[in-house]
Lab assay of single mutants.
Amino acid sequence: AVCQVIGMYDYTAQNDDELAFNKGQIINVLNKEDPDWWKGEVNGQVGLFPSNYVKLTT
């Protein structure tokens, strides 16, 4: 993983390639090539999510 982030809001996947997560959930970021849509993993599920829905862990 590149880094870990925390969901600031609940996110519901809109497409099959997206990653759903809940507020407060830890997401392992796998790829930040696109500044707006990062690739991440939660509980074995991998997908894209909007980078503005998360904050970096300290």
Rank of each mutant, 00 (worst) to 15 (best):
N28I: 08
F21R: 04
G40M: 05
N52W: 08
T57M: 13
V29L: 09
A20L: 03
N28L: 07
G44H: 05
V29H: 00
S51A: 13
L48A: 07
V42F: 08
Y53Q: 11
I6W: 04
A13E: 02
K23I: 02
W37I: 13
N31Q: 12
V2N: 11
L56P: 12
E41G: 02
I26V: 15
L19F: 04
D17V: 07
M8E: 15
L48M: 12
L48D: 03
C3P: 01
G44A: 06
D34A: 08
Q14K: 15
S51M: 06
Y9S: 15
F21T: 00
T58C: 14
V5C: 14
G7P: 07
Q14P: 02
D10G: 06
I26H: 09
N22Q: 15
F21W: 04
K32Q: 13
A1F: 10
Y9E: 15
F21K: 06
K55S: 14
A13C: 03
E18K: 08
G24Q: 08
S51G: 01
V46W: 01
Q14C: 06
E33M: 08
V42P: 04
G44Y: 04
G44E: 01
V54I: 03
V46L: 07
A13P: 13
V29F: 07
V46N: 04
G24H: 03
F21S: 00
T57Y: 13
L48K: 13
P50S: 00
V29E: 00
Q45K: 14
S51F: 00
Y9M: 15
I6A: 05
Y9W: 15
F49H: 06
I27P: 05
P50G: 03
F49M: 04
L56R: 09
V29S: 02
K32G: 06
N43F: 02
D16H: 05
I26E: 10
K23E: 13
V42C: 14
K55G: 09
F21H: 04
F21E: 03
D16N: 09
V46D: 05
L30K: 02
D17K: 12
L30E: 00
D36G: 10
G7F: 04
N15D: 11
V2L: 08
N28C: 05
K32H: 08
L56F: 12
W38T: 01
V2G: 12
L19R: 03
T57P: 14
A20E: 12
I6Q: 11
D16G: 12
I6F: 05
Q14G: 11
Q45D: 14
N31P: 02
G47K: 06
D16W: 04
G24C: 00
K32E: 06
M8S: 10
G44M: 01
G40S: 02
V54M: 03
Y11W: 00
N43I: 00
D17Y: 09
V46I: 14
L19Y: 00
Q45H: 08
G44I: 02
P50M: 02
V2C: 09
V54A: 06
